[in-house]
Amino acid sequence: MAEQLRLIKKYPNRRLYDTRTSTYITLADVKELVLHHEEFQVLDAKSGEDLTRSILLQIILEEESAGAPMFTSDILAQMIRFYGNAMQGMMGKYLENNLRAFTDIQHKLQDQAKALYGDNTGKNQEVWTQFLNFQGPAMQGVMGTYVEQSAKVFQQMQENMQEQTRKLMGGFPFPGFPPDKTAEKAGDKK
């Protein structure tokens, strides 16, 4: 039988209550649930509003403020610029797919480490660090190639969307769209 979704209630005093264990928990406890891949949902105790994303964002904010941030200011600014942009929905999916691919690569590396060093690699941080130091340049090469391929796919997607827009909107009388072929040919003859 599949385990039910773990329910956490957030009370007006900002305390989190885990209904499974009947105890109050902290953001650090919620982070542990995430790290252990436990499915949960955080609901406002009064309104029933889903606060899961808000709590996860709080955890990210705490991690980013702890001294070893994952995101640069430039990345955060670029992400903010996508809000309200027509590409917002696509960007979310793009990031999600790239994180999934990165996670897949990480699992393959962990499998390789187990094959080389045995089953205790997850427990022995030093062995894992040595493995990553050995595999670091190769990993950077794989990720660089992946990013290049991803950028090419994204560029092709943009070109396809532009071509579809030209086909769709070509019958409508928009000034300058599609570009006047006679004006282009006259410009080429000069």
Rank of each mutant, 00 (worst) to 15 (best):
N98F: 10
K114C: 07
Q106S: 09
L132N: 06
Y94D: 02
I80C: 07
Q112F: 07
Y146W: 10
G118Q: 06
T129L: 14
V127N: 00
G84R: 03
K108I: 12
Y146E: 04
K114Y: 08
F131H: 05
A115C: 00
P137L: 03
V142F: 01
E126R: 15
E126Q: 12
N124I: 14
L99Q: 08
F102S: 00
M90Y: 12
F131Q: 00
M139V: 10
K123Y: 10
I105R: 04
N124C: 11
K114V: 11
Y117W: 10
E96I: 04
Q130H: 10
N97G: 07
N120E: 09
L109R: 02
L109W: 05
N85Y: 10
Q125A: 15
Q106A: 14
L116T: 08
Y146P: 02
Q88P: 03
G118C: 07
R100Y: 09
G89Y: 01
T121I: 12
G122L: 08
K114D: 06
M91L: 11
F131Y: 09
I80Q: 11
Q110F: 13
M90S: 15
N98R: 13
Y83N: 14
K108F: 10
F82C: 04
W128Q: 03
A101F: 06
G141K: 10
Q88E: 14
K108D: 08
T145K: 14
D119V: 12
G84K: 02
L132M: 15
G144I: 11
G144N: 09
K108P: 01
T145C: 03
Q112M: 10
N120H: 12
H107W: 08
D104G: 14
R81A: 15
N133E: 04
